[in-house]
């Protein structure tokens, strides 16, 4: 798992973030991007029980709302009222 998937991850920019526990900058890609044993999954569409049929780009369907619609796995779901962890 990667830092970016972790609920302790704080977004900074397109190439890095910060670990909310250690307060250290962590890269999104390459060496050092793998999460530590404290990893705890962040709410994202990709791990939501309502998300399915993702293609190779991570674009799938959201069935959580009255109207089914497309969604993408990397989208944050902290504020989503329908999010349920898979």
């Amino acid at each position: 798992m990667k830092h970016t998937e972790c609920k302790y991850y704080i977004n900074l920019d397109c190439e890095k973030g910060m670990c909310g526990r250690t307060k250290k900058m962590v890269p999104i890609d390459g060496a050092g991007s793998e999460a530590c044993p404290m990893f705890d999954q962040a709410p994202k569409c990709g791990v939501c029980g309502h998300f399915c049929n993702a293609d190779k780009y991570g674009v799938g369907m959201c069935q959580g709302f009255k109207k089914e619609n497309w969604a993408y796995a990397g989208c944050g779901a902290f504020g989503c009222e329908k999010f349920v962890m898979k």
């Binding site: 704080i10 977004n11 900074l12 920019d13 397109c14 910060m18 909310g20 307060k23 944050g76 779901a77 902290f78 504020g79 989503c80």
Partner: peptide
């Protein structure tokens, strides 16, 4: 707005951002 990922840096006293990224 209500679905945007809230993002807070450890040393901030005032919060909220345009997007989840700081210079976003």
């Amino acid at each position: 707005l209500s679905h945007a990922t809230p993002n807070i840096l450890p040393y901030e006293k005032l919060v909220m951002q345009k997007t989840k990224n700081v210079r976003g």
